[in-house]
Amino acid sequence: MMNQPILSVRNLTVNVDNTPILKGVNLEINAGEIHAIMGRNGSGKSTFSKVLTGHPEYEVTGGEVIYKGENLLEKEPEERALAGIFLAFQYPLEIPGVSNLDFLRVAYNARCKYLKLEELDAFDFEDLVEEKLDIVKMDSAFLARSLNEGFSGGEKKRNEILQMALLEPTLGILDEIDSGLDIDALRIVSEGVNKLRKPDNAFLLITHYQRLLDYITPDFVHVMYQGKIVMSGDKDLALELEKKGYDFLEEENLVAN
């Protein structure tokens, strides 16, 4: 099984409140690859990321998702996380009263426990975090604050990447990581992701804009439209989309109908 894909999605259909949102998604991601899914609002991109991480509000009605040879859909959200799936949220939640540092340590140690590695005490963990902070150019003052509370949009996103750096996922899913970022923050976040890239992991970027892909070069670009991946290509597809806009899909769709 040398060439077993990290993620294999076949004909996935998903309802939210009995409304079909995903209508047969197919996607295969191999180790070392970066995939980007583009599409306009409401096309199902974010739903797809939530389904992969096991959000309870999404009902899978058909198809399958195989992650490293195992049926992903029967796993609880935390089991998926521990198995190496990480979602950087589009809107990271603010949780007052939980210190960022404590939260990172609890999450890190949960993963250590799962991997049967030694858990880190507060001191050793702080050393580790200090090291990782540099990846996202974050000040250590952020660690003492409550998780995401009062963070700016850019700080929240950097904090997501910091979590990803600590948890070292096999599959990192970045849901509109570029939204709400100015150019400097976008560069820092993108460079962070690039530094985390390894031959045995993979990334799935979800974005509206080609801009992000100037910083993180995808191997594959997919276009999602009305709950399906309707087009796949290399990074040039993103440029083409940027030029033509999403409207041309409508025209193509009309032609197809």
């Binding site: 991480t53 096991g54 959000h55 309870p56 509000e57 609880e76 959200p77 935390e78 998926r80 996380a81 521990l82 990480f86 979602l87 949220f89 990271p92 939640l93 949780i95 007052p96 009263g97 939980v98 939260f103 609890v106 999450a107 949960a110 993963r111 799962y114 409550s146 979590q163 948890l167």
Partner: peptide, 25 residues
């Protein structure tokens, strides 16, 4: 529910996630 999901997506089980939120409160 969204807070619990956020914590679970980082590897905490539901029980620990609930208690972390309660302690925070």
């Amino acid at each position: 529910a969204d807070e619990i999901f956020y914590l679970r997506s980082r590897g905490l089980n539901e029980y620990d996630a609930r208690h972390l939120l309660m302690d925070a409160f």
